Amino acid sequence: MGSQVEELVLQLKAAGDETRLRLLALLDQGERTVKELTDILGQSQPRVSRHLKILADAGLVDRNPEGSWVYYRLADELPGRASGRETVRAILACADAADTNLKRDRERLAVLKRQNQASAERYFEEHAAEWDRIRSLHVPEREVEAAVLATAGDGPFRSMLDIGTGTGRMLELFAGRTERALGVDLSHAMLAVARANLERAGVGQARVRIGDGNNLPVVRESFDLVLIHQVLHFLDDPAGAIAEAAQALEPGGRLIVVDFAPHGLEFLREKQAHRRLGIGHGLMEQWLANAGLALGSVEDLAPSGDAEALTVTIWSARDRRAPALGENVGLGLGETV
């Protein structure tokens, strides 16, 4: 009890500064880079960075490096740590919403979000033709998404991980079924698209992070649902990615993999960087078994009337370990341990 009181006092002291309160109010609306926060507040980068360090030391915000950028967000609740997010929201509930600075910050944040959305749309338009060509080769995306939702079930899921999140579509699709969600991707450009899409859709419980599917930046055994959607055919070591995903599952957790069945469309290898021309049932079953997972369902979505069309396969597997009664597993959104 004493340590919790001390931590709360430290958090309240850290928040007891006008600039730091403004930073917390902004981060309550989503993660931001130092540059974005600097532009909104109109203060120098060293000054903003110093305030952010104080907030991070108090456990109110988390720091997430992404290449040469650093994203800050409200701290997640992790095992052994009080919830800084709850403290922040209790403090903000007492703040004057009509405060001139807070109001101006919200207006500048709205402008920033519109700029980010426009940038994301430009990127998407530049690549839309190639993505549309691939989508035209298989059943409509809405049918694939409906099948993925049906395979997962209604949930709710406490913690979801989307490996190779791309535009963040799976995070958006599962928004109504997840309490917390994390998407990882190796592309900074795609993460910018995902962030803009999630903000536009009002998906507040999901966030994204730079990350390698073969070396996930997450706490082990922390997610009750993991998705790998149209990713494995790009990888040099898809079996390793399956094994890594299995390590992220809590006992009894679910893994859903969506990818193409074997096909002969060589242009996807030559033009779209596909390393594999689809994945067969037997090979996937072997990968899942080697990762310690029990295969559940397999569903093939094959378009009709076109011999060269792509079949989309959805595999569902489960961690073989039964969750212990009363087990309290963390949400897995912290750094690798």
Rank of each mutant, 00 (worst) to 15 (best):
Q4C: 09
V5M: 14
L12E: 00
D17S: 14
L21W: 03
L21E: 12
Q29E: 15
G30K: 07
G30Y: 12
G30A: 04
T33A: 11
L37T: 10
T38G: 07
I40E: 02
G42K: 01
S44N: 11
P46H: 06
R47M: 08
H51V: 00
L52R: 04
K53Q: 12
A56W: 02
A56H: 08
D57A: 11
D57P: 01
A58E: 03
A58M: 01
A58G: 03
A58L: 02
V61G: 03
R63A: 01
Y71R: 14
L74K: 05
A75L: 07
A75I: 05
D76Q: 05
G80D: 00
E86V: 11
V88R: 06
L92D: 07
L92N: 10
C94W: 07
D99F: 00
D99S: 14
L102D: 01
L102M: 08
K103M: 07
K103N: 08
D105P: 00
D105S: 12
D105T: 11
R106A: 15
A110V: 00
V111W: 10
S119W: 08
E125D: 14
E126T: 14
A129R: 15
A129C: 06
E130S: 15
W131C: 01
W131G: 03
R133D: 07
E141S: 14
E143W: 09
V144N: 02
E145M: 14
L149W: 14
D154R: 14
F157P: 04
M160P: 11
M160N: 11
G164C: 06
L171Q: 10
L171D: 12
L173K: 09
G176A: 11
V184T: 10
D185A: 07
A192K: 15
V193S: 13
V193F: 09
R200G: 00
A201S: 14
G211R: 09
G211K: 10
N215C: 05
V218S: 06
V219C: 05
V219Y: 02
D224C: 11
L225Q: 08
H229Y: 13
H229L: 02
Q230Y: 09
D236Y: 09
G240R: 04
A241Y: 02
E244G: 05
Q247E: 15
A248Q: 03
E250S: 12
P251E: 01
P251K: 07
G252Q: 08
R254M: 15
I256G: 03
V258C: 11
F260R: 02
L265S: 06
F267K: 05
L268V: 03
K271E: 12
K271A: 05
A273L: 11
H274M: 13
L277Y: 01
I279T: 03
H281T: 08
W287T: 03
N290G: 10
N290V: 09
A291Y: 11
L295T: 13
P303T: 04
S304P: 02
E308F: 08
A309C: 06
L310W: 06
V312D: 07
V312S: 08
V312M: 12
W315Y: 13
W315N: 09
S316Y: 02
A317E: 04
R318D: 04
A322M: 09
P323A: 09
E327V: 12
E327W: 10
G330Q: 07
L331K: 09
L331Q: 07
E335A: 12
E335M: 06
